[in-house]
């Protein structure tokens, strides 16, 4: 089919709807957020239109710097663990019989239907001393007495990974299902053990999917603000928690917006960087 460039205004009609939706639900809210971030806070009130960089200036302190670094580190860690578990899991899942695959996928979708609050409370119970998993280990004779594992960094990590894992698998699943199984077999007949073949053929062949998945999980984890509160100590609070504090409890919308803009910028920069790096590696493909 030959495509001719659009000539009349109506030729642009097919993209009008997606463009309008994108504008309405992404560009406009983001623009409002950017605008509010330079507004002047009215203590004891709300905010009034102005142009001030004071909100950004307040953010540029070692304290918020540390929180930002921790947030990025936590998100990257969650993303790495999700891929580390999710990739072999999804690969083995796609090797199962169709019926079994469906059962697994439905179970994972079930996790998606749980709210962040339920996940947080469930894990805080599971990791507690009085009613948690450690009691089971004591009963099994693996531990001497029950222990409390929450709040802690491990608990935050566990909760976030649990929540992000279904997304990981659902993003990886279509690509792994489409993966030609003979790639792996070819690698084996050419002299690679199954694990080696998985590492040097399957993973590199899926590079783009893996990168996309890690970015999705990274962004997802970066936005988490409930789980770090429920499962973590204050030093495990992410920037998103502080944004929520400012927006809801301090009514400081301009500062909350400035932090949010900074968070978006920082994550976009990281995403751009990783795409650029992988793009150079995959150049000529």
């Amino acid at each position: 089919m030959r495509r001719s460039p659009p000539q009349k205004l109506t030729d642009y009609l097919p993209i009008a709807f997606p463009a309008a939706m994108l504008g309405l639900f992404f560009v406009v809210p983001f623009a409002i957020m950017v605008a509010v971030s330079v507004f002047k806070r009215v203590p004891g009130g709300f905010y009034e239109p102005a142009f001030t960089l004071a909100n950004y200036a307040r953010f540029l302190s070692p304290f918020f710097g540390e929180v930002l670094v921790f947030s990025l580190f936590l998100a990257a860690f969650v993303s790495a663990i999700c891929l580390l578990i999710g990739v072999p899991f999804t690969y083995l899942l796609t090797r199962l019989r169709r019926g079994n695959q469906v059962v697994w996928l439905i179970a994972l979708l079930g996790v998606l239907s749980l709210s962040e609050v339920i996940i947080g409370f469930s894990w805080s119970t599971l990791l507690s001393r009085t009613a948690g998993l450690s009691n089971l280990f004591v009963w099994l004779g693996l531990m001497d007495r029950p222990q409390s594992w929450t709040p802690s960094f491990g608990a935050v990590l566990t909760g976030l990974v649990y929540q992000a894992f279904p997304y990981t698998v659902l993003v990886l699943y279509p690509a792994f299902s489409r993966l030609d199984p003979s790639l792996m077999e070819a690698a084996r007949t050419l002299g690679s053990s199954p694990i080696r073949a998985f590492l040097n053929v399957v993973l590199p062949a899926m590079r783009t999917t893996l990168l996309a998945t890690s970015i999705i999980v990274f962004i997802f984890a970066l936005g988490a603000y409930l789980l770090p509160q429920i499962l973590g100590r204050p030093q495990h609070w992410t920037l998103s928690v502080l944004v929520t504090d400012q927006a809801i409890y301090q009514s400081n919308m301009p500062f909350a917006a400035a932090m949010a803009v900074f968070l978006v910028m920082a994550s976009l920069a990281l995403v751009g960087l990783s795409v650029a790096i992988s793009g150079r590696k995959g150049a000529g493909q």
Binding site: F63, L242, N252
Partner: peptide, 13 residues
Amino acid sequence: SDWLNQKWTELIV
């Protein structure tokens, strides 16, 4: 408000 909040957050975080 803002000063207290900032100091408090730094205190506990």
